[in-house]
Structures are given as C-alpha cells and as structure tokens.
Design a protein around this nucleic acid. Structure first.
Length: 525
DNA sequence: TGCAATT
C-alpha cells in the first residue's frame, strides 16, 4: 500500500513563488519507509512530448551541458524540473550537485526568452532514469539552496506527464476530507499518481481537489463512477468529478501573460499602493469570476492566480492611491495599459505639462534607439521641484507620462512592453465597428484627461472583446471631455467590466462605468 | 463635468 506524505506543490511556471500553493498528497514508492522523503511516483513508459523548452536566445548566455557522444539517455529517462535555484547559479554551478546521482544528459537553466534573465529553475535530464529518481528522492524539498527561502524542487517536468488528460478536478468535497480520504474515494478506479486538496492560506480545504491517474481511461472511469454519485455532508450539491480542463490552464496562462504585460515582470516598478495594483486587483476580480464560473463556484487562490499575483495581492491597495502617495505610477501605467500605439486623438507631440524632478518609474528599456523618456522631460520645463507630489500630482505625472510616451512611438511600432509580450489581437485590429448590441455598450465617466481611445480600450480589454472604444473629444479644444464609450461584443463582458471597473479609483476620481443609455425604444436596430 | 460618431 502506498504511503502518504504531505508535500507542497507549486506551479512550475512560477518557480519563484514565495508562498506555498497547496499541499499535495504524494504517495511514496514501494519499499519506502515513513522516514524517507516523499517520492512523486514517476510514471513509466511515457512517450516524450516534442515540446521544446525555452532556451536562451543567446547561446553564449547559458552553457547547456549538452548531449555528447557516449552521453545518450535511456529511452525511459525522465526530464526533471528543478525549482528554487538561486539566480546566480548557472549550469556549471549546479552540475556538481546533481552529478552525484548519475551522469547528466542535459542540464539547462531556464532563462527568460526575451530578457535572458535567470528564471530560478532548470530542466535536468539524467542519462539514466534511475538517477532522476535518486536525485528526486534525495533533493526534492530536502535542501534549501543558499539565499532561497523555499527548498529545492526536483520533480518530473510537466512535459513528462502530459497530465491534463488524466488529471481530474474534484469539486463539492466536504471541507473535512483530507488527501487520504480523496485518495480512498478514487483508488478503486486506477493508479493515482497525485492527489491534492486545494487549500487556502490558512490550510483549510477549499472543498476541491485534483486527482491525477496514471491513464486517461482510469480517469474517465472515475468520472463515470463518481461524478454526481453522492453528496458529501455539508456540500451544497453532489460530487463533481471532471477532467481538470486545459482551457482553465490556458485562461490562467493568458492571465499570467496579461498581468506580466501589466508590469509584474518588472518587480522594480510593480509597487504596492499604486494604480497598477488597484487595476490588477480589478483584473483579478474579473479572473476570479471566470474561474469561479468554470469551477462550479469553487475557487482557490492557488488555482486562480499565478503565484506572483498572489504575492502581489498581499500588498494590494484595495482602493487605490493613498492621499500622499510618493509612488510614481507612470511606468506602471504604461504597462498597465499595455500601450502599443498613441491614442488616436494624439496625432502630434502633445503638450508637455510640469513634471516633478527626479520622477522615475518609466520603463528603462529603450528599443528603437529612442532616448530615455526621462530626457524628454528635461528641457527647461517648469517643475514642482521640491514639493512632495500629492496623489493628484502623481497621477497627473503618470498620465502625462502616458501621453509623452505614446507620443514618441509612432503608431504601429512596439513599445518596450509590447515587444516583450504578445499583444492581444484586439489591440492590433482596427476599430471599425462603432456600437455593440444593446447591453454591450458602456458609458465611462471620470476618465483621466489624457486618456485616448487606445488607453480606454486597453483598460477594458481584459473583460472581453472590445469592438469599439471612444473618448469624447471637445471639437474646439481637442481635449478629452473625460468620458467615453466602450462596446463589447457581448453583454456578459460589459457586465464584467462594470463589476470590476465601476468605482475604480484613479487619483482623486473614481470611474463611473455603466451601461450606455439606450437611444430610445425606437432605435432602428 | 454627465451619454457620441463631420447628424
């Protein structure tokens, strides 16, 4: 009989995650004693997917210990994911640690595809399958590398298991049910490789779990047998057993990307008490709604949000800027908006407004050989100089920054942000349609003066397909009237946007987001 | 400040 051990699992996409995600039941291998470390059961005979892993763009940056002659790996070799590696350790530094378990076929530190930044994790393949198992047994969660707060992770890479077609989501569990209870429940239907009860930060069960079988067929049989089969005491409806659907994963990934685009990837400017944080919060509310819906109402932070976001959430300001925020937000706002082109209504370099000296927070990337944005501000402009910026000042700077920044990038060119991450397709598409069906059109008031159509669209894209965004301009002055319209292609997106963004605080003002008044009953369409 | 679109 398998034994149970509590270990922590975390998403390997977020290996730098500072918080435990949830506990996981992993059963130890045959012959293991309770005193032995946990062993993730490693499935035999998995065909190798052809997924290619991120490799550094510049080969010079990272020295992969590459397959050489006489360095062939076994057919059943296991690619291991190594997490919680200090970022100053490269392949050559890691090699000795892992070599003691066997000959290394390949060891690659993951680097950010664009920045080349060490991601704090690696892939490791031993020539022999047995070496991987030994390494995992000896190292996984057993040792913390210098400078790290979490123990090293050594486990089969996600690519090794293709878990999604045999991983089940189990909902409507009793919150008292443990990993072992869940295990017992599913045991009759096949070999369980991993059983995880999702838990909140307090350790309390969220009433749902993931169960990974060794085969798709086993997982399917468990669904047939258990889904809806019983109602757990205290649960509001019958047991939910379904494949942990990959769309969800994709949604999360998309979200990660999006939020990455909104600035978390640059920790230096992802500061708390910022407009960004509030916006991220709004985004996460929206994401939570999506996740809750797709999970039959169950939502745990660990499944809904990438861990960097969780980290951020701890520092979120719920209602935006404090009255005297010193936090420069311009850079964040650039990123929060994912600006890709100047607002449609800013066709010439715009009016330069006073900027506080020493203003920082603007992204320092300078693609296209443009001068740093800071230098754009330094030409004898009036300055508030010594005064501390108030929230309003700060915001004004932020928005001025947006305006400036957008102005120096011609339409169609990529901003530093746009360069590093994929753009939502909607951003690229030209605005053709004007108004969506009834219930899809929003009226937004209290927009920042500097917001143009594009900023408006960026702000609402996370909630759905924006088919139109328009800031109303004063024809005489060419100034924004601080209100505008956003149209989605469906009412649900519009409602989601209202939920998340109505009351969203920007500086001293709060956005008012509501359905646009219908023209009249006698609308021709 | 308050619901468009060279109407």
């Amino acid at each position: 009989m398998a034994r149970f051990t509590q270990t922590e699992t975390r998403r390997q996409q977020q290996p730098q995650q500072p918080h435990p995600a949830h506990t996981s039941l992993v059963f130890t291998g045959p012959g293991a004693t309770p005193s032995q470390q946990p062993l993730l059961l490693i499935p035999h005979q998995h065909q190798y997917s052809q997924i290619t892993f991120p490799k550094p763009m510049n080969g010079s940056e990272s020295i992969s210990i590459h397959p050489e002659s006489g360095n062939m790996k076994d057919q059943d070799a296991i690619k291991l994911f190594i997490g919680q590696i200090p970022r100053n350790l490269e392949e050559k530094d890691l090699k000795p640690l892992f070599e003691q378990f066997g000959k290394i076929h390949e060891l690659t530190v993951l680097k950010d595809r664009y920045t080349g930044m060490h991601k704090g994790c690696a892939f490791l393949t031993y020539c022999a399958r047995e070496s991987a198992i030994k390494a995992q047994n000896a190292l996984h969660e057993q040792k913390t590398l210098p400078g790290m707060t979490r123990p090293i992770q050594v486990k089969p890479a996600d690519s090794e298991s293709r878990g999604e077609d045999r991983k089940l989501f189990v909902g409507m569990l009793n919150k008292q049910q443990t990993e072992e209870d869940v295990y017992r429940l599913f045991e009759p239907y096949g070999v369980i490789e991993e059983c995880t009860v999702l838990r909140g930060p307090d350790g309390n069960s969220k009433g749902c779990a993931f169960v990974k079988f060794s085969t798709h067929a086993e997982a399917q049989s468990a669904i047939s047998a258990l889904h809806g089969s019983q109602t757990m005491p205290g649960a509001s409806s019958s047991l939910v057993v379904k494949f942990a659907d990959t769309d969800k994963e994709r949604t999360i990934r998309r979200m990660q990307q999006m939020v990455g685009q909104f600035g978390i990837f640059n920790p230096a400017i992802a500061l708390p008490f910022s407009t960004y944080s509030t916006y991220a919060h709004a985004l996460m509310q929206q994401q939570a709604a999506i996740m809750a819906a797709s999970h039959g109402g169950y939502l745990t932070p660990s499944m809904a949000f990438p861990t960097t976001q969780l980290h951020q959430m701890g520092a979120l300001s719920i209602n935006g800027l404090p009255p005297n925020s010193m936090t420069p937000v311009s850079g964040e706002f650039h990123q929060a908006l994912g600006l890709s082109s100047p607002p449609a209504n800013i066709t010439t370099p715009s009016i330069v407004t006073p900027i506080v000296n020493g203003f920082t927070g603007i992204p320092h990337h300078q693609p296209n050989g443009h001068p740093a944005v800071e230098t754009m501000y330094s030409n004898g402009l009036p300055s508030y100089s010594t005064q501390s910026p108030t929230a309003a000042d700060t915001l004004q700077q932020a928005f001025t920054g947006v305006q400036q920044y957008t102005a120096i990038y011609p339409a169609g060119t990529l901003t530093p942000i746009g360069q590093t991450l994929p753009q939502p397709s909607q951003v690229i598409q030209q605005q053709q349609q004007r108004e969506g069906p009834e219930g899809c059109n929003l009226f937004i008031y209290h927009l920042p003066q500097e917001f143009g159509d594009n900023e408006l669209m960026q702000m609402f894209l996370p909630f759905g397909s924006v088919i139109s965004s328009k800031v109303f301009m004063d024809r005489a002055t060419n100034q924004s009237k601080c209100f505008g319209f956003v149209s989605f292609d469906n009412p649900a997106s519009a409602q989601a946007a209202i939920q998340a963004m109505n009351g969203f605080q920007i500086g001293m003002k709060r956005l008012k987001v509501q359905l646009k008044r219908p023209k009249d009953a006698s609308r021709p369409y």
